[in-house]
Write a protein that binds this DNA or RNA. Structure first.
Length: 525
RNA sequence: GGGUCUAUGGCUCAGCCAGGUAGAGCACCGGACUCUUAAUCCGGCUGUCGAGGGUUCGAAUCCCUCUAGACCCGCCA
């Protein structure tokens, strides 16, 4: 009944221990365990793509943590020989002429990387760096041109008919019964999705024809070129249904997570890996897609991407790691509005982590401790940081537009929310400030400025200019115009900071300056 | 056609994987403090854990069936 907690008690530890058990059973060495994450390079990386890599890194950490004799490494593999299927929302239409070409052969529209593909995977690598995640980066283009998969490619193409039959059996997809699972880049037009290979020649070459293809309901024109292509020199790539297997075998990959959208591909690749390439396939875990708040899949090519960059504009790296590490099962609806929750949840975890008594449920406490440790990549800080509540910060940030950090920090100290100002506080103020600026008050109602209220506001503005204390000015004008004080306060908040509530007004007015507030009130009338 | 996930208080969800007295936040009610706003603090209310069956001493949790919703695959990657 009381099972011993595995590792640090999280799903990551459980997964890693299953993996170790399997490796031992297979009699393989634990000296270097490679875990892999495919990056994708054809669209703007979203939270889900990041999750794949971050979770794989979690498994890497857990492996080294569980077994002292074990070293592990995360391979981040950019699929930059994949062709461009669709111009992502917000990108220039001129990319249309490159549809079907490998993304590493398309110029970077932003001009900062050597190709479109490098730009896209670069964004993901940047966010991995921002999170402190270490990886070994491999680009498909380099791997193929160095002949990394030559041996596997040969074996696969030799067994193409057997593989085609199997694919048709388990996925219902029949095309590989007649077509080789390999796409050469057309030597004439540079496209990769238009080439069809019917024959694998004995000398390591394939013969192909460049035909029209339909991708995503859209026709991509082929150029009609017919030629032969060497399969070992980077002039083409394996189809996805068999390419993972080649990678796993060539790089000796022992773990790879996957989204449910590629379940079939993984099943085929497992079979190919085991039966054609003689490499026991990596241990897997399947995860659900991240959905946006409306419940639709986050897609790289339609506009609703929640990118790691967006998250990190408002939330801490820890909050993003928490999102990805707290669990792996279950469909996840996620949006910018979750960032405040996750940031605060880190604070809550931290409080529990440093609390003296761990509560009644030891197992649960251990899991939460473990989660906190993973959120800090297993190097938790020696002592808790000052972590003011995010919603309070947003509210204060809305109130103080100028010299924000100084004003907000002073408030926090006065409230007793924080005792000291440290790096975390200024980071939090900056992030919550971004949130307040971008999402501030848009849903706040417009103040109702009719007769008496209008007069009252004018009086208040005059009184403020005359140096009257804010509190007195508000009270007397409320009496004079027969308005509830609470209504005046409410209206003032709406006028001054476009929110129905806020910090105490008298101190706020003192901070900001009575003259400026008076001007703001007049400006709204 | 095939597959996966989800269903827990008014709302959003945790707990389920490794069974042991149903939890949190928000909302709401009462109180404290306050400048009749906000924030903070204390206390309180809120549940046929989607339905039915099974396993078990014990099921929100495991198994089966069903219902509802969502997503994915059946182009390509």
């Amino acid at each position: 009944m009381n099972k011993e907690t595995i590792g640090r008690g999280t799903w990551i530890d459980k997964l890693a221990s299953e993996l170790v058990a399997r490796e031992k059973k297979l009699g393989r060495s634990l000296e270097m365990i490679r875990v892999e994450s495919g990056l994708g390079a054809s669209g703007i990386p979203h939270i889900g793509s990041l999750g794949d890599a971050v979770r794989a890194y979690g498994v890497k950490m857990a492996l080294e943590d569980l077994d002292p004799g074990c070293r592990a490494e995360l391979i981040a593999y950019s699929d930059d020989l994949d062709g461009l299927r669709k111009v992502p929302a917000g990108f220039d239409e001129s990319l249309n002429e490159h549809l079907g070409k490998p993304v590493s052969a398309i110029p970077d529209p932003s001009g900062c990387h050597d190709s479109y593909g490098a730009h896209m995977s670069g964004m993901l690598l940047e966010s991995l760096d921002a999170l402190g995640i270490k990886y070994t980066h491999i680009r498909a283009r380099d791997a193929y041109s160095q002949g990394m998969f030559a041996e596997q490619t040969a074996k696969i193409l030799e067994s193409a008919s057997r593989i085609g039959e199997h694919i048709s059996e388990i996925t219902g997809q029949t095309k590989f019964r007649t077509v080789m699972p390999y796409y050469p880049i057309c030597a004439q037009c540079g496209k990769i999705y238009t080439t069809v290979v019917k024959e694998y020649l004995d000398d390591g070459r394939v013969s192909y024809v460049c035909n029209d293809a339909v991708i995503g309901g859209k026709k991509i024109a082929g150029c009609g070129h017919a030629a032969e292509s060497d399969v070992t020199g980077g002039a083409g790539k394996l189809a996805w249904k068999v390419e993972f297997a080649a990678r796993w075998a060539a790089l000796d990959v022992r773990f790879e997570a996957f989204g449910k959208d590629i379940m079939d591909s993984v099943a085929v690749n497992d079979w190919v890996s085991e039966n054609i390439l003689g490499h026991p396939p990596p241990h897997h875990v399947k995860y659900e897609m991240f959905l946006d708040r409306a419940g639709t899949k986050i897609s790289k090519s339609s506009g609703n991407v929640l990118t790691p960059q967006t998250w990190l504009r408002y939330g801490t790296p820890e909050s993003l790691l928490l999102l990805l590490y707290k669990r792996i099962t279950g469909a996840r609806r996620v949006g910018v509005e979750d960032i405040p929750l996750l940031v605060d949840e880190v604070a809550q975890l931290e409080a529990q982590y440093f609390a003296k008594d761990s509560g009644s449920n030891r197992e649960k406490a251990a899991r939460l401790r473990g989660l906190y440790e993973y959120v800090h990549l297993l190097s938790p800080p020696p002592k808790p940081a000052e972590r003011p509540p995010y919603s309070l910060l947003v509210e204060l940030a809305r109130a103080f537009q100028d010299e924000r950090e100084e004003h907000v920090t002073r408030r926090l100290l006065e409230y007793g929310t924080i005792k000291d100002v440290d790096k975390t506080v200024s980071e939090y103020v900056r992030l919550a400030g971004n949130y307040a600026d971008d999402y501030g008050g848009s849903d706040a109602p417009k103040p109702d400025l009719d007769g008496p209220m209008r007069r009252a506001l004018v009086e208040i503005a005059d009184a403020l200019d005359a140096g009257t204390a804010a509190q007195d000015a508000i009270k007397s004008s409320a009496q004079k115009n027969d308005i509830q004080t609470r209504d005046i306060f409410r209206t003032l908040y709406l006028v001054i900071m476009a929110a129905p509530s806020g910090p105490r007004l008298s101190k706020f007015i003192e901070d900001v300056g009575a003259g400026r507030v008076a001007a703001k009130i007049r400006g709204s009338l």
